[in-house]
Design a protein around this nucleic acid. Structure first.
Lengths: 138, 138
DNA sequence: CTAGAATTTAGAGCGTGCTCGAAGTCAAAC
DNA sequence: GTTTGACTTCGAGCACGCTCTAAATTCTAG
């Protein structure tokens, strides 16, 4: 299928598809017609989806490239691939934790504003994080 | 305290402190000495910490600026502030969910590699996401 | 008083991940 | 055959969030 069709099916723009290819995010080169146009197969789409999902976990392009290199190098480096994925997993867990922690600040502030609005808007002083005892939120 | 001390205490570089100020991430202008050097007070640090934590939830600078503008505008816009925070909260929850979903792909792949390595490395075919029935992972 | 460290400004530079433009080639419908 | 739209490459451009430089000034310790 054409690059346009591949873009439609993966939800990635044709620009980005070509960019990913240039960036080395490939495991096997995409087929080309005699005139040089790309022709995608299902496995190409599957790989693009993997890239998309790795990106969605915040894996940088260069790391996905490294992973792609390991995959295309074939057998024998499974431990390296595993190490790469596990190392990234640690980062993802850290980011999840950070996000959740700071979401609490957000929730706290939202609670303060809700209370203040319900109560008819009382004082305005505030503290940075969780209330030390008494405090509002900016 | 000096900007250097403020940087030390907030964990933000002096460059970034000045950048935040330029970017409008201020609720009250930082004091200046007669000669023009910044002198930070505890509330300034508290606000910087709020900014840092909002940043950590992925809130863009321009949104924090908007929030700062609302705060410094004073009373009467609490509903706007609440709306801003709640809207951002929705985005944070979405990103948390996305992160968690794609973490599952990561975990799945890690599981596949662990199994393959333990088993002494079997076949190499693969599927993009969760295994449809039988498949390994790239 | 003086040396060295810290601070000031405005503006440039950078890393990341796209996103787009230009100029040309190709393909499918008519 | 011709048009219309999709495709090609290459390089530039952009948005974001810092990060750094330069040159001048100010502060602090001895």
């Amino acid at each position: 299928m054409s690059i346009g069709e591949a873009a439609r099916r993966t939800g990635v723009s044709v620009h980005t598809l070509r960019y990913y290819e240039r960036a080395g995010l490939v495991v096997t080169p995409v087929d080309r017609t005699a005139s040089g146009q790309r022709r995608y197969q299902q496995p190409d789409l599957d790989w693009i989806n993997v890239c998309t999902r790795l990106r969605a976990t915040g894996m940088p392009i260069r790391t996905i490239r490294r992973y792609a290199e390991l995959v295309s190098a074939g057998h024998g480096n499974e431990k390296d691939r595993l190490a790469l994925l596990e190392s990234h997993r640690v980062e993802v867990l850290a980011r999840l934790a950070e996000l959740q922690e700071n979401l609490e600040l957000l929730d706290h502030k939202i609670g303060v504003y809700r209370g203040r609005i319900d109560a008819g808007d009382a004082d305005q002083l505030w503290a940075a994080g969780r209330p030390p005892a008494t405090a509002a939120a900016r």
